[in-house]
Design a protein around this nucleic acid. Sequence first.
DNA 1: CAAATAGTGTCTGTGAGACACTATCCG
DNA 2: CGGATAGTGTCTCACAGACACTATTTG
Lengths: 258, 258
Amino acid sequence: MSNEKALQQYDVKKYRTPDGYTSDIAVFTITSEQKEVFKPAEMELKLMLIQRSALDSEGRPNIEASKWALPGGFVEETESAFESAQRELMEETGVTGIHLKHFGVYDKPGRDPRGWIITNAHYAIVPETKLVHRQANDDADKVELFTVEEVLNLDLAFDHREIIKDAIKAITNDLLQTTVARNFLPDHFTYSELQAVLMTVTDDPAIHLKQSFQRKIKMLPFIEEVPGETTNRTSKKPAKLYRFNDVEVGSSIYTRAY
Amino acid sequence: MSNEKALQQYDVKKYRTPDGYTSDIAVFTITSEQKEVFKPAEMELKLMLIQRSALDSEGRPNIEASKWALPGGFVEETESAFESAQRELMEETGVTGIHLKHFGVYDKPGRDPRGWIITNAHYAIVPETKLVHRQANDDADKVELFTVEEVLNLDLAFDHREIIKDAIKAITNDLLQTTVARNFLPDHFTYSELQAVLMTVTDDPAIHLKQSFQRKIKMLPFIEEVPGETTNRTSKKPAKLYRFNDVEVGSSIYTRAY
DNA sequence: CAAATAGTGTCTGTGAGACACTATCCG
DNA sequence: CGGATAGTGTCTCACAGACACTATTTG
């Protein structure tokens, strides 16, 4: 392979290279507060942020200290940014197999005072139960959940305000345009549970209205009824259970009622 | 601002950093071949690739020589990857104001034999007319257009096969889910011209069937008729002209006929 | 029984899809 | 006039949305 000769002569330091390559994660969860038994839960979409500590892990003053930020860290040479995000999410929540998706790159000159640092932004969907043992680590004073309204009023580190805005846009879009909502739900769920998840990100009356949504769910090709099974967790009358199947979704804005 | 003290102690070389940060561009165009007058054009989606030259601009053996590749180059410290892509596209086509969109990051260890090199992938939509004076440059032997069927049979450099597959997926999706199709069309277009663009990426009968699509176009909120104007460029009978307006599109898979 | 959520019967309007037709212009 | 594309009239079926109702369970 003639690449060998070319490689011998290639000077890896010919170009100015970035000072850092990092991965950040917007960890979303839906808190579902069941006020009473036999009631559908009230759900709220929340984002997990850390408050950067005053001193870093080596005892030196930390950059952007005391500001709120997305969890994240430096990508290692042996991994991709996505793998790095998986690793960090594992370290943070102790859980693997979490829905994780890349949604943007942030590399504007000056975005990080430490130098030319590029970050890959991901969002993760973590069931609330997996966040119970969330904990501050070396770099963080506190770990807290914020609603999407609260979060933009915080004092945020770096360009994380912009990243978070994009993250909210990305998850909203994906919840409505793909079947990622399944990651917020148990395997078998009632119409009102799915509805509650979707209502956290849309005001669409077709989703908010009980009968419309109830009728619609039966006609969706990517959702099927679980035959025979019912649950009482949302009401006194037993409710049918549904599950996502693997039918692909996808059409065009030119062909459907939009 | 207490960042100052932190910055003084921050060692920018603490972490292993990437060996390069690049931007690649999948330049798409639709070639429209009008076989006869008064006929709608037959359109085909094509991708512009360069063939890497044997020697680089400094006369040394080039890496991945003679393979086909996406145009691209190193990002400079003073710009973002997106700006770098804009600059490269300008250098390549001599045109600005082109539709350009980031669709992915490729950073798998080993993807580039020269080292730890991260690339940002973008796709661009360039009207065929703006590609007429396309030309080989220092790094490229040839510049050519390929159909999406042809392109995957070529000997492609680096991981560009994967990037190109993703680019095709991204543009297909965007053409059907957003109004980017406008970038392939004149400001005022006939129903058959829009139809021809969409047919390059979908087999949906609702788009292929004349009367269905003709009726549908009138009801789309983001397209409006240009009052009074007609054209004969696609038929003997004068055809109505339409234009995109700025109504936003967006709904959910749970609420419409999918 | 009242109360609360789940779920259905039915009507109306709208639009998708199919068929057949008309309209306009060129040569 | 024939031929080609643009565009309409009309019917049918399916579904969204609204209203009013029924069903199942708890306390």
